[in-house]
Simulated scan of single mutants.
Amino acid sequence: MNFVKSSLKYPQVTLSVLFLVFVIGVNSLLNMPRREDPKSPFVQDWYWHFIPEPTLPR
């Protein structure tokens, strides 16, 4: 049976999937390591911002 058809026929499927995603999200927020200065694998000086130059009308 197709997942979409089963979720329309049985709303418990959709509710259970949404509840499972919600529980996993709350669990990940509660178990997230907290540090004042988190370690980053990237060097902060390597970030470049590309800002397009404005074109002036002639």
Results as ranks from 00 to 15, higher is better:
1 M>S: 11
1 M>D: 03
2 N>P: 06
5 K>R: 10
6 S>F: 05
6 S>Q: 09
7 S>Q: 01
7 S>G: 00
7 S>W: 02
7 S>Y: 02
7 S>R: 02
8 L>P: 01
8 L>N: 04
9 K>R: 11
9 K>D: 08
9 K>W: 00
9 K>M: 10
10 Y>E: 10
10 Y>C: 04
11 P>M: 05
12 Q>N: 06
12 Q>T: 01
12 Q>Y: 06
13 V>L: 05
14 T>W: 06
14 T>F: 07
15 L>S: 10
15 L>R: 01
16 S>N: 11
16 S>D: 09
17 V>F: 04
18 L>S: 10
19 F>W: 10
19 F>P: 00
20 L>C: 14
20 L>D: 01
20 L>G: 14
21 V>W: 03
22 F>N: 08
22 F>K: 10
22 F>C: 09
22 F>V: 04
23 V>M: 07
24 I>P: 03
24 I>T: 15
24 I>V: 15
24 I>C: 12
25 G>K: 15
25 G>H: 08
26 V>P: 05
26 V>H: 05
26 V>R: 04
27 N>C: 14
27 N>F: 15
28 S>V: 14
28 S>W: 08
29 L>P: 03
29 L>R: 02
30 L>C: 02
31 N>P: 00
31 N>F: 09
31 N>M: 11
31 N>H: 14
31 N>V: 14
32 M>Y: 01
33 P>M: 07
33 P>G: 02
33 P>R: 13
33 P>I: 01
33 P>F: 02
33 P>V: 05
34 R>W: 03
35 R>F: 08
35 R>K: 13
36 E>V: 04
37 D>R: 11
37 D>T: 07
38 P>K: 07
38 P>I: 01
38 P>S: 02
40 S>A: 08
40 S>C: 06
41 P>S: 08
41 P>I: 00
42 F>I: 01
43 V>C: 09
44 Q>A: 11
44 Q>M: 09
45 D>N: 06
45 D>W: 03
46 W>N: 14
46 W>T: 12
47 Y>V: 12
47 Y>G: 00
48 W>V: 14
48 W>L: 13
48 W>P: 00
48 W>Q: 13
48 W>A: 13
49 H>W: 08
49 H>F: 10
49 H>N: 07
49 H>V: 04
50 F>T: 05
52 P>Y: 07
52 P>V: 04
52 P>S: 04
53 E>R: 05
53 E>L: 12
53 E>I: 07
53 E>K: 03
53 E>S: 06
54 P>K: 15
54 P>N: 15
54 P>M: 15
55 T>S: 09
55 T>P: 07
56 L>V: 15
57 P>I: 15
57 P>Q: 05
58 R>I: 15
